[in-house]
C-alpha cells in the first residue's frame, strides 16, 4: 500500500532591497547620529507623520523638510508577546506598543521595556532608550521605557 505523504516542509527565502528615499534616509541618519526622531508635515492638514511619509488622507503633499519630534510620548495600546515565532525582534515575553510621540499625530510602533509587564498601562508616558551602537535603523532604539510625569 502506497504511503500517503501528509505534508511538505520548506523555507521561503526572498531577499530584497528597500530604497529609502531622501526623507527616510535622513530620518535614519539623524537617529544614528543625533538620537532624535523626525517626521514629515502634511501641507493640507498640518499633521506630523513619524516615521516620515505622505499623509494618507491628503495623498502625500508635505513640507520638504523634516520636523523634529520628541523621543517621548504617550502609550496608546500595547500587546504582550508570549509565544515564539520566526522573525521576532526579541525573545518572548516582550511588549510591543503604539506610541504617539509628542509633536506627532501618528503611531510609532516599538517595544516597551525596562518595566514589569503587569505595570504597563495604556496612557502612560514613555521615553526612548537609545542603543550605544547605532546602525541607522529602528533598533537604534532599544525600547521605550515608562517615565515619571
Amino acid at each position: 500500500m502506497t504511503e500517503i505523504v501528509n505534508n511538505v516542509q520548506h523555507t521561503w527565502h526572498v531577499p530584497y532591497h528597500w530604497s529609502y528615499g531622501s526623507m527616510t534616509e535622513e530620518f535614519f541618519e539623524r537617529m544614528k547620529n543625533e538620537k532624535t526622531l523626525y517626521g514629515t508635515k502634511c501641507t493640507v492638514c498640518g499633521k506630523v507623520m513619524v516615521p516620515p511619509g505622505g499623509c494618507p488622507i491628503h495623498l502625500g503633499p508635505m513640507e520638504d523638510k523634516l520636523i523634529p519630534v520628541k523621543d517621548e510620548g504617550v502609550l496608546d495600546c500595547v500587546t504582550i508577546v508570549n509565544l515564539p515565532y520566526p522573525g521576532q525582534p526579541a525573545t518572548p515575553p516582550y511588549a510591543y506598543g503604539y506610541i504617539i510621540l509628542d509633536g506627532a499625530n501618528t503611531f510609532f510602533m516599538h517595544m516597551i521595556g525596562g518595566v514589569e509587564h503587569e505595570d504597563i498601562r495604556v496612557g502612560m508616558k514613555v521615553k526612548a532608550v537609545w542603543n550605544e551602537n547605532r546602525n541607522g535603523d529602528f533598533y537604534d532604539i532599544k525600547y521605550f521605557q515608562p517615565i515619571d510625569t
Binding site: T2, E3, I4, V5, N6, N7, V8, Q9, H10, T11, W12, H13, V14, P15, Y16, H17, W18, S19, Y20, E25, F28, E29, P86, G87, G136, D137
Partner: peptide
C-alpha cells in the same frame, strides 16, 4: 549614507498535501 536596506523575508512553512497529492508523493518514494 545608507540609501537602502538589504534584507530578506525568510519564512518556514508546512504544506498539508491531502490524500491525493499525498499518495502521488508516496508513489514517488517508491
Amino acid at each position: 549614507m545608507a540609501r537602502k536596506l538589504d534584507w530578506d523575508i525568510t519564512v518556514p512553512y508546512k504544506w498539508t498535501t491531502g490524500p491525493v497529492i499525498g499518495k502521488f508523493l508516496g508513489g514517488l518514494k517508491e
